[in-house]
Design a protein around this nucleic acid. Structure first.
Lengths: 190, 190
DNA sequence: CACGCATCTTGGACGCCGTCTAATATTCGA
DNA sequence: TCGAATATTAGACGGCGTCCAAGATGCGTG
């Protein structure tokens, strides 16, 4: 790793750390990008060099995390049924969010603007997942593959919605597992 | 209906009509809220009195439409399985979008900012749908109800994603039907 | 009709976001 | 060691979304 690359990663982390600290103290909307930049000892322009928006600093993943999940995807055996791969990938991805998700959730609860934001932890992950699914199922029924991928994401979204304020992160994970199973088994009769 | 209420509806429609026309001519980002307001003969402040954001003017539904789908939801028989109700509601809702969805899609295709926006046609609809589902399944397994609702939305999202640029609206509707059926039947093995 | 009241509209100002450019600083490769 | 590639920065800009106080418009009552 270059000195340049090391510095980049360091700057990225400094900005995000400063931003999350300030957001946690004062709330998302009461902190301006200028204040974040100042706290991280960079200029406002540099902030936007690393993050596309103020919301992105809450949702973007550490650049090194990306390599992790990409490796995880590629490690799935090629002959595994797509849905089994998807559930395994989704569970593993979410387990790794144990430390960041509660904070992100607290911020969302306090700030409507952030909650409304379409952005999500999934943004980058979903993009990579889509690529993986597409190469994994090349030549087969494309829409069904797309559908299964979206179903896996919906399972996560539903478990997240059902996550009560006072519950620990584990409760979310257990619900995610249950949602994935339910979806795989077909719609229940209610 | 009051004169006041009639004027309100009229203003809402004038603003939206002007906005969509301008967006279609010049693209979403090249039209400012000021220009929309001017074209609709209202002030900039009035625009924000009717629409919460520039994106909202693309995605919000006509106030009268809302009564339609609410009536449709409440018309479902109480003893119908939830998933059957959801598929019927989702199909009927989407059929009514025949005229607006192609335009909205064209705008999205031309403007990345709009495409990225988390907003959706579903925004208001989903909120009402959620309320309907919650009262409809009161006392039963809440998470499963939530899950089914989200699955129906995912079916629509997937059909939308698979909608090729040159296809007519009907192709989207047919795919939506197929997605709903597939989800109801359980995940296929790929 | 006349009046006061509620609601809607409007201009103007404000803070902040996100983009851009041109100049400067830093690192890299040779 | 030096030129090329890349990162950082200040500053300016347009536009979005919010706010307020003043004026206009429709409403129910006497």
């Amino acid at each position: 790793m270059n000195l340049r690359e090391r510095k980049k990663l360091e700057a990225w982390r400094a900005i995000r750390a400063a931003a999350l600290r300030l957001f946690d103290e004062r709330g998302f909307e009461s902190v301006s990008v200028e204040q974040i930049a100042a706290a991280a000892n960079v200029s406002r322009a540099t902030f936007f060099n690393y993050f596309a928006s103020k919301e992105a600093v809450v949702f973007d993943q550490d650049p090194q995390e990306r390599e992790n999940w990409q490796a995880m995807m590629n490690a799935r055996p090629a002959d595994e049924p797509l849905w089994d791969s998807l559930t395994a990938i989704m569970m593993a991805f979410n387990e790794r969010l144990a430390d960041r998700m509660p904070l992100q959730r607290r911020l969302k609860a306090r700030s409507p603007a952030l909650a409304q934001s379409t952005q999500d932890f999934g943004e980058q992950f979903s993009s990579d997942l889509r690529d993986w699914v597409m190469t994994r199922t090349r030549g087969q029924d494309e829409m069904t593959a797309l559908l299964q991928m979206n179903l896996a994401r919906t399972a996560a979204a539903t478990a997240y919605q059902a996550w009560q304020a006072d519950e620990p992160f584990d409760a979310y994970l257990r619900r995610l597992q249950r949602c994935l199973q339910q979806v795989g088994a077909g719609v229940a009769t209610i």
